[in-house]
Design a protein around this nucleic acid. Structure first.
Lengths: 180, 180
DNA sequence: GTCCGGCCTGTTACAGTGTAACGACCGGGC
DNA sequence: GCCCGGTCGTTACACTGTAACAGGCCGGAC
């Protein structure tokens, strides 16, 4: 559907710091380590499927759909169904290891080890397809104030901004779909 | 999928407009009038399909999916395909007459005649399914500041808060799915 | 040991979401 | 007249997401 750029194709084998892309230095290993610690602490099962799902998402430099993930997890003899991926993603999102980008129906690794209360702002670049996750206490405060005033008790927050990232503004704007 | 109550249609006439918009029934007639004026001014075609689509969305008190709309627009002999509804919705969203709720894949009427620059905050109640649209200059400012700092040039903004609306907090929490 | 129950995964089936492509119709402008 | 642009009907298709059921695995109770 939205084959935005072949941003994350560089297969840089490994060893070099897995800065997947533009500015998302989510290191897969760090994220996996965090997951393992979390599972340990809470008595949860960080299964192979969940781990591989997390790795796939972390290694891509842009949001991945569930079916894309399923495809990447599948091998000639061994097909992974999307429904299994959804279940793994449920687990991962529930525990803050990946985030769902509602406006794209796609998933990105969590770039912060944010506390439960904090909510992120996602900056989605239309040119290169990258997603940057930031946190702003100021925005949180404004939101809290507005919500309180409206008598609304928030449970989850979605803040997604689409536009053009700094890197893409530099290069010729419409230099389409190129990796950052 | 989500048959959340038949919420809309409360004329809570009196004045506790805490946040300047009275989350009441968007007057369908007003919205249609606005559309007609807009089409007139810009030389656009406010066709029957677009008008009926707008009316259906405006008359419902909660977000409607494209297929729901198609169903409501269809009559025994005359079926309206979802794809036509999508095209009408494209037109309506493009011109700020309806909004898309990304987290629900559904549409609500615009409750403000907001200027192009302004972006809305949507308060989505998990209990009754209603959606309240508010605008906060403070939030806009915080966002702008964060975006500028990140060197990100925004094109569109999505802010959606899920939780429990004031009315539903009063009544027994889990009295789910009841009209407000 | 066996049995049981919970959790995870595989599988099938299905409903909902969204777009692409083609053709017809209708309104001007020329 | 003819063309051109925009709208709409139709078909087809791909993607998104959930429900339901079955099998496996593991740990605890007995």
């Amino acid at each position: 559907m939205d084959e935005h750029g072949t941003c994350g194709h560089h297969d840089h084998a490994h060893g070099d710091h897995a800065h997947g892309h533009g500015h998302g230095p989510v290191r897969t290993a760090d994220l996996v380590a965090r997951a393992e610690r979390l599972a340990q602490d809470l008595g949860l099962q960080f299964t192979a499927l969940r781990r591989r799902t997390l790795e796939v998402v972390a290694e891509e430099g842009r949001p991945l759909g569930a079916y894309d993930i399923a495809e990447r997890l599948s091998a000639p003899g061994k097909r992974v169904a999307a429904v299994s991926v959804y279940r793994a993603l449920d687990f991962l999102t529930e525990h803050g290891l990946v985030h769902r980008i509602a406006s794209r129906n796609a998933f990105v690794p969590c770039e912060h080890g944010h506390g439960a209360g904090e909510s992120a702002v996602f900056l989605i670049c239309r040119s290169c397809g990258s997603v940057d996750e930031t946190i702003s206490a100021e925005i949180e405060r404004s939101l809290d104030r507005t919500l309180a005033q409206a008598g609304f008790k928030p449970a989850s927050r979605i803040v997604e901004i689409e536009g053009e990232c700094g890197a893409c503004q530099g290069r010729g704007e419409a230099s389409r779909t190129e990796p950052c």
